[in-house]
């Protein structure tokens, strides 16, 4: 099951800007069907266990694949799984808005944005390639595998030479 990457590939009959708006519009519905939580500032932070907050761009195939990897792993885990909370980086209109989701990030120029909490304390935060790798490794994958998946899907969609 690859609901997030499938969403990313959907609506390709539209012009790119219109397609991205359609994908973004449907993102929360896909997220609601996954074993992941939507998180917004003000929601409670669990006081125990591992908590992962991931900010994704719905126009990024890499970010959507990361969510598929995590959702698939979460659906297999029965106990001791981290709490995974997701937000759309489009909700951050300015740099300072990110601090309301994940502190200590500095200037954000890449997605995903990731924060890892253990027992209520922020342990790590980062962005881009490094953050994707960090989050994926918690679920038995990595940035290289995600890149490979995206490349393979691109090849599968490309016309034969």
């Amino acid at each position: 099951m690859t609901p997030f990457y499938d969403l990313f590939l959907s609506h390709h009959d539209l012009m790119p800007g219109e397609q991205q708006r359609a994908v973004e519009h449907e993102f929360l519905a896909v997220l609601a069907r996954a074993p992941l939580r939507s998180w917004s500032p003000g929601s409670a932070i669990p006081a125990s266990g591992t908590r992962l907050v991931i900010g994704v761009a719905t126009w990024s195939g890499y970010d959507m694949r990361l969510l598929d990897v995590i959702a698939e792993a979460m659906s297999r885990q029965t106990s001791g799984a981290p709490v995974v909370e997701v937000f759309n980086t489009a909700d951050c209109r300015e740099q300072r808005d990110f601090a309301r989701y994940v502190p200590n990030l500095g200037s954000i120029s890449q997605t995903p944005v990731v924060g890892v909490w253990r027992d209520g304390q922020l342990e790590w935060s980062g962005q881009g390639h490094e953050a994707r790798d960090r989050a994926a490794r918690l679920f038995g994958s990595g940035s290289a595998e995600i890149g490979e998946y995206v490349r393979d899907r691109i090849k599968a969609r490309s016309p034969a030479p």
């Binding site: 790119p16 800007g17 991205q20 708006r21 761009a57 980086t89 951050c92 300015e94 740099q95 990110f98």
Partner: peptide, 18 residues
């Protein structure tokens, strides 16, 4: 254009413009 915002404004400013 590889994955990149199109006709949208992000925290970095306007994305690629059609």
């Amino acid at each position: 254009t590889n994955p990149v915002p199109v006709d949208a404004i992000t925290h970095l400013g306007p994305g690629v413009q059609t």
